[in-house]
Design a protein around this nucleic acid. Structure first.
Length: 497
RNA sequence: GGGAGCGUAGCUCAAUUGGCAGAGCAACCGGCUUUUAACCGGUAGGUUGCGGGAUCGUUGCCCGCUGCUCCCA
């Protein structure tokens, strides 16, 4: 945007600011509110009107003035602070002629401090009857209209500060996000997990299959990659003896933008020694049900379009990938899922991607993603992912072609991915070599060979379960947000103009 | 990367077949001492996203660019 986009409205307010400067300090910082709106409302909202006539409750508050209503010699407005908003009432006789005249010339959006006492209006609203007020910060830019608010999605994302000032729902979504993250942190802390931080800049981008961002370290004159996952570092910590660790932090993936993809997003990953993927399905179920009950306040979660609800109260469904394909595709025979030729024609028929060098496991996964994933509405665990698409997961004892892995779905979207960790260093080395072959064949999402990680495994990773949960998608699900941009404060946008 | 739609006053939106670009809110002036989308009267506010083209004439038609939204890969 240009530096000079002033219009007449802004020019008028600049004139008011100039007048303020001439009178003294235009940006004072010596007002200290003793109260916040939410506490005043919680404590006094339900009192009888008469209570305030016999009991004087002196209060002071500071915040942004919204909804100014001047009616001759008396005025109402609301003051919004970080906790909420409360109404103020000014009478010319109470604040004085000069001060009242100043109030009449305040603009909606100005930040003020108010002192007074509580009372209840005839309409029953708890209100501060002002004895005095002060302009603390002049607002130069007009806010969006009070009734419709700011609806333009582009401006809501680019100027999130305006969105937060004016749209209560936006504020609530982000407060819910904070509450969910806080709940998760306490959930793991109370189970003796250590919260750790691992590198954002990695020499070898590992732990997931995705294209990384590249950056450059000048002093070392070498390229570094922004991490696509913390997984391999967290498991190194389990090798080091931290039996239970978790990290909530940013990942970066160099992919397209969509309603479900932001180039940087927040991931929860957690690892526990002497546990397996079944233990983690149980733990996940416990965590999500508790978030629904304690943060959202309901185990039936509304979909983004409001037309469906997802039930978190009953046990989450669990089935293998092969079972789920059979369940949603009456025309696919179970035996064909293990026959490369048959599977290839099924995949083509179902509109899934097919490449010549793909094996049974990859093709099964493509068919699953094309025909099953979007239909998994109520909370569902899908297990037994093919080893071919799970290079870091432990093979199943009975069927080495699949792994002890699950993904978790709600509303047709993947929320979590967990598995018993592959702690056989020789198998891991072989799987890395397989990935490198894909990499050499031109698959720029395939994994690199991480020799230090294999070395760590050679020291001995105890039997361990691990899992990642995408926090942004989790918050979308719990808040019914249609786009990931609604749950990220400052989502990535192309530059303006 | 491909397709469709959108971009008009600070905000929310109009503008008939291509014929003077308008309303509500916000702002400014005036009135009003319990309003809450306050109310009443008046005033002012525009490079119609950017650039080109066709036309006597464009917000509207054509081309290019740009940002956003949705769908697809």
């Amino acid at each position: 945007m240009s530096e000079d986009d002033d219009n007449k409205l802004i020019a008028q307010r600049r004139e008011k600011l100039t007048a303020l400067r001439e009178k003294g300090q235009a940006y004072p910082n010596d007002f200290r509110p003793a109260d916040i709106a939410r506490d005043l409302l919680d404590e006094h909202e339900n009192r009888a009107k008469e209570y305030f006539e016999s009991t004087e409750i002196p209060v002071s508050i500071a915040g942004r003035m919204l909804g100014k209503r001047v009616m001759g010699k008396a005025s109402f407005a609301h003051v919004q602070d970080g906790s909420g908003k409360i109404q103020i009432f000014l009478q010319q006789g109470a604040v004085g002629d000069e001060s009242y005249d100043e109030f009449k010339h305040l603009d909606v959006g100005d930040i003020i401090g108010v002192k007074g006492k509580l009372f209840q209006t005839n309409k029953g609203e708890l209100t501060i009857k002002a004895s005095s007020f002060r302009l603390l910060t002049k607002s130069l830019r007009p806010l969006p209209e009070k009734f419709h608010g700011l609806t333009d999605t582009e401006q809501r994302y680019r100027q999130r500060y305006v969105d937060l000032i004016i749209n209560n729902e936006a504020r609530e979504v982000f407060k819910t996000r904070v509450a969910i993250v806080k709940y998760i942190r306490e959930f793991f802390n109370s189970r003796s997990y250590l919260e750790v931080e691992t590198p954002m800049m990695q020499v070898i981008p590992g732990g997931a299959t995705a294209r990384p961002f590249v950056t450059h370290h000048n002093a070392l004159d070498m390229d570094l990659f922004l991490r696509i996952a913390p997984e391999l570092y967290l498991k190194r910590l389990v090798v080091g003896g931290f039996d239970r660790v978790f990290e909530i932090n940013r990942n970066f993936r160099n992919e397209g933008l969509s309603t479900r993809h932001n180039p940087e997003f927040t991931m929860l990953e957690f690892y526990q020694a002497y546990a397996d993927y079944n233990d983690f399905m149980n733990l996940t179920e416990e965590l999500l049900r508790e978030i629904a009950e304690n943060v959202i306040g309901s185990t039936s979660i509304k979909s983004a379009d409001g037309e469906t609800t997802y039930d978190f109260s009953k046990p989450f469904a669990r089935m293998t990938m092969a079972e789920s394909i059979a369940q949603f595709n009456a025309d696919i025979y179970a035996d064909d899922l293990n026959n490369l030729e048959a599977l290839r024609s099924i995949a083509e028929r179902k509109g899934a991607k097919v490449q010549d060098n793909w094996g049974v496991g990859k093709l099964q996964t493509e068919v699953f993603e094309a025909t099953v994933e979007h239909r998994l509405l109520d909370p569902t665990f899908i297990t037994a992912y093919p080893a071919e698409v799970s290079p870091l997961a432990r093979r199943n004892d009975k069927d080495p072609h699949v792994t002890d892995r699950f993904e978790f779905f709600v509303g047709g979207r993947e929320i979590a991915n967990g598995f018993s960790e592959l702690n056989d260093s020789e198998d891991q080395a072989a799987r890395f070599r397989e990935q490198v072959a894909h990499l050499d064949a031109g698959d720029d999402e395939a994994m690199h060979y991480d020799a230090d990680y294999v070395r760590a495994l050679e020291f001995g990773l105890p039997p361990t379960a691990g899992e990642g949960i995408g926090i942004d998608r989790l918050v979308m699900m719990f808040t019914g947000a249609p786009s990931i941009r609604d749950v990220i404060l400052f989502p990535h946008m192309r530059p303006e103009a």
